[in-house]
Nucleic acid binder design. Sequence first.
DNA 1: GATGAATGAGATTTCATTCAT
DNA 2: TATGAATGAAATCTCATTCAT
Lengths: 191, 191, 191, 191
Amino acid sequence: MVKLKDDKKITQIFQAALKLVAKKGLSGMTMGDISKEAGIATGTLYVYFTSKDELINALFAACRESSVQVSFKGYQPHTPFKPGFRHIWLNILRYKLQNFEESVFMEQCYHSPFITADTREKAQQLSAPFYQLIERGKKEQLIKNIDTGLLITFMIGTMNELVKQTHYSGITLNRSRVNTTFDLCWDALKA
Amino acid sequence: MVKLKDDKKITQIFQAALKLVAKKGLSGMTMGDISKEAGIATGTLYVYFTSKDELINALFAACRESSVQVSFKGYQPHTPFKPGFRHIWLNILRYKLQNFEESVFMEQCYHSPFITADTREKAQQLSAPFYQLIERGKKEQLIKNIDTGLLITFMIGTMNELVKQTHYSGITLNRSRVNTTFDLCWDALKA
Amino acid sequence: MVKLKDDKKITQIFQAALKLVAKKGLSGMTMGDISKEAGIATGTLYVYFTSKDELINALFAACRESSVQVSFKGYQPHTPFKPGFRHIWLNILRYKLQNFEESVFMEQCYHSPFITADTREKAQQLSAPFYQLIERGKKEQLIKNIDTGLLITFMIGTMNELVKQTHYSGITLNRSRVNTTFDLCWDALKA
Amino acid sequence: MVKLKDDKKITQIFQAALKLVAKKGLSGMTMGDISKEAGIATGTLYVYFTSKDELINALFAACRESSVQVSFKGYQPHTPFKPGFRHIWLNILRYKLQNFEESVFMEQCYHSPFITADTREKAQQLSAPFYQLIERGKKEQLIKNIDTGLLITFMIGTMNELVKQTHYSGITLNRSRVNTTFDLCWDALKA
DNA sequence: GATGAATGAGATTTCATTCAT
DNA sequence: TATGAATGAAATCTCATTCAT
């Protein structure tokens, strides 16, 4: 039996990269830093990723995927719309707060030359469930009858901002604060 | 008699930098790129800025300043709140759409190690008028009674997202679309 | 009972190396390439050769040896000189054409630091039969009375060039063409 | 006035590269070595050549060009064929002996992946005068009526071998030795 | 013996900055 | 001031070799 490529190692690498982007920005993150942070040799990075570009694209895709996956955890399609929407909204909020580094990373990537059109495309496709969700809300006349893409961008964008604000102001979100914040968002979208 | 430092040249440099960040991201922008794009020699950059860091910080400050300045242009403090708020909101929207590269740049800077605490501090101070504006709205019970910082982050954040969405979807904002979008924001903030 | 080192595997490795040198040059050939081309793992190379240097030296020696061995195949020392010489000359030509990659490899090795003095020395010793052959020709006054080393270099050198030319021009050597080419060489050497 | 790219520096770089290839082979020559040998910073190499590949291709082209140019120096087209041919032959011999490193470099490059098809093509084109020369000899029925390409390869190939042999045996070519060697070549080619 | 992931020294290349002109 | 060649530290990436399985 031989040593095989190790999924755990990929996780280590990803964690290291996220930590570094949060600390030093995308431009300040080097392959050397990543390997040191991940506790492996620089060369080993290239066993798992053929280049820095590929590493970043893979991480981008992984973040996107896990974020989407978490969003719908525990969501019951047959629940009435608003509580269902709220459930997802809370999932996202929780995820983004607990994985703040990912948000930073995604934001930094957005306009970087690292992310390829292909990666971008695939990320976009993962938004499908959100589209369906919003469409349902519109059909039930609970959500404003505006371009769905716009509503989603808005919803996600505001969450990002809320999370940033929360993170940097050092405020811990108690239940009432969360409720207030949700209302902010809901009032915007509701028909 | 020596020629003095040339303001026009600083503008050229800033324009070049903005163009490059939009195209290649902050991490992909080199001093060589900037000089080439600005049509000057690399060495000349160092006549105007002592380092890349300084250049970026200066550009950050300049963007922030001009953005704030534009925001309140034509604002009459004695107008009733909502139309006044709307006026400013439109100023910002227009500015961000017309200066999309600046938005990208500001976003990229947010988590980068380039921006010094000092620059960040000064940028923050420029937000004072927005705080006053929102405080007024809260006093008049037109705006939700939530932490002002949160409301501002929210307001600015949503605009950024709207602008991004508009820019990338290629949609041109006609009057009705702008109105819809404003309502989205207003509904969120209004008490 | 363990399997012993496998001669077939050594042949595979040598074939792979030759193919790669012909394609990418000695400087472009990596141990990784060789193992892939040979269809074995990198580590396995080190079961058979302690280092890249050793592999190359061993291959060099093997090529030299088999080339010399083939040269005198079927040679009858008692035949008159010219037909005997011709026989050997044809052996060499045929061998070099059929094993073009070896020629390329030998040429690339000539000035490379890979080949040790020892390997070079041993290769040189294998030239003894050629020296004897030429000496005989000189004694019989059929070959020019010039430094034997020079004559041999000349003879081998010209063959190499003929083979290269033939290989790259894509010309197939028919009998008459071979005769012409032999005459070229013979006219040079003959007294 | 500004510092301009320096042709002398290119010569330095070329000299350094040639010296190193002769000493360590093409595979052993690093950009770091070259810069050190040339007495400049590593980065400076990249001011003159965008990559190691380009440097090697440029050097290859330069060697080829200067070699061809030297070959016909002092050649009078109206001289009778054999002395004219001899003159050129001597030019080449002298050049190759005095620039032995170039020969080594050219040989090493021949099968390396560095040399592009384009470079190869251009090198080939420089052979035109040799073709004309040999064609003339054939027309005057002084040279064997064989494929011209073959004759040229042969002529050049033998010179290379002679030079190698001379260089490594440490023999200095006196006049009589040169004559003998020329005869070797002439006897091969002559009709 | 065979495997191929892991290593890290070293190669190529980039780029912020300096400096001679 | 303006230039752009020169610099060299540091980044990315390669690859001969080792080692755990």
